[in-house]
Design a binder for these strands. Structure first.
Lengths: 193, 193
DNA sequence: CCTATTTCAGAATAAATATTCCAAAATAGG
DNA sequence: CCTATTTTGGAATATTTATTCTGAAATAGG
């Protein structure tokens, strides 16, 4: 029995996510958020809480979207090693084509907010664990089917792939060349064999 | 024919470097810098220019110190592949032992300031090029001596190692385990063979 | 010992910041 | 149509910010 919101929460959150993604936490002002979310100051505080709480919700939203995108990306691929390649290629392609070159919000958040922000630590570690278990699963399956012949443990190989995903994110920020990034992918794939 | 400075420029710059390293550019206030550098506001502006200029000098200083440390680290090692291992191990050890877990200033700067800050782009790319040529040199030498048997081009292998150095920096921030990071080193060394 | 010049200490400034407040607008249920 | 309740717009507030200014302190060279 009252007035209705004039905006869609998810749309507004998407605006916040893009701004935090592009500018990071400390360089984003509430004014930036008011602009990019397309809602009023009071509505912002009322619906999302303060800046830090909104940042957390943005990061969690990014994590969910990303996990979902990745799983969709590989669901129709039958060869396990090719699943890994698709994940790596997806990241590299994103790095090379994003005109704003924002990188990965999760990685950006890791380097900006860790180790001091406990809340962000939780989201980042949660994401890292999810990602690792996805990779481990794929690798385990690949070893069983003989598509991945490296005899190291699936966990170790997953760590290795995850390390390279992070490294590609960094290199992707610093005027990378296409061949440089795809060369690294080939090298990683060679390791899995 | 005038008053002398009451501080040592290099010492003051070291204080600034540590603060920017720990907190990043945007979360560091001039007050933080006045405190950590142990000098007066007016002296700071007079000697180092504004905040951005001071940041640049701090980053350049970090780059120089780091390059120097790395070259010293490997100068007494005769086996090329072991030089690479020493570089990787040095980074991991630093990540695991730094009580503040600051990570690498250069990597932090890359994710915080790129792609928009042209001045930082220059320092970062310069450092990346230096690092790559160091790695390439070592790998080329190792291949010639048969200590590195992977037949890929030294440049590609250098890219690969550099990618993993970056990845380790990220993983090193998020509650890593010792075995996880050293496991990745073993995997990278296995690739070089 | 002067004095020209630089450094220093901290107050002053002006802009940006995150957050709160208040009154007007909207609306769902009676 | 009321009215209780929520949302909204934007002004208000109180910090914090980077930078500049002013005048006193120090000192090297004459």
């Amino acid at each position: 029995m009252a007035r209705n919101k004039e905006f869609i929460k998810e749309k507004a959150l998407e605006g916040a996510m893009n701004t935090f993604w592009k500018k990071g936490y400390h360089d984003t002002s509430m004014q930036d958020l008011v602009d990019s979310m397309g809602i009023n100051r009071a509505s912002l505080y009322d619906t999302f809480g303060d800046k830090h709480h909104l940042y957390l919700q943005s990061l969690e939203s990014y994590r969910d979207i990303n996990q979902c995108t990745l799983r969709q990306l590989i669901e129709n691929e039958t060869i396990s090693s090719e699943k890994i390649r698709k994940i790596l290629t997806h990241l590299v392609t994103e790095s090379l084509t994003d005109s704003e070159n924002k990188g990965c919000f999760m990685t950006n958040a890791t380097l900006e907010m860790l180790p001091h922000d406990e809340d962000v630590v939780n989201v980042v570690c949660d994401n890292l664990i999810n990602m690792k278990s996805l990779l481990t699963e794929i690798i385990k399956e690949g070893q069983a089917k003989g598509e991945i012949q490296n005899p190291a443990s699936p966990e170790s190989l997953a760590d290795f792939v995850q390390c390279n995903l992070g490294g590609l994110r960094i290199l992707g920020k610093a005027r990378p060349t296409t061949q440089q990034l795809f060369g690294i992918i080939d090298m990683v794939m060679m390791v899995l064999r």
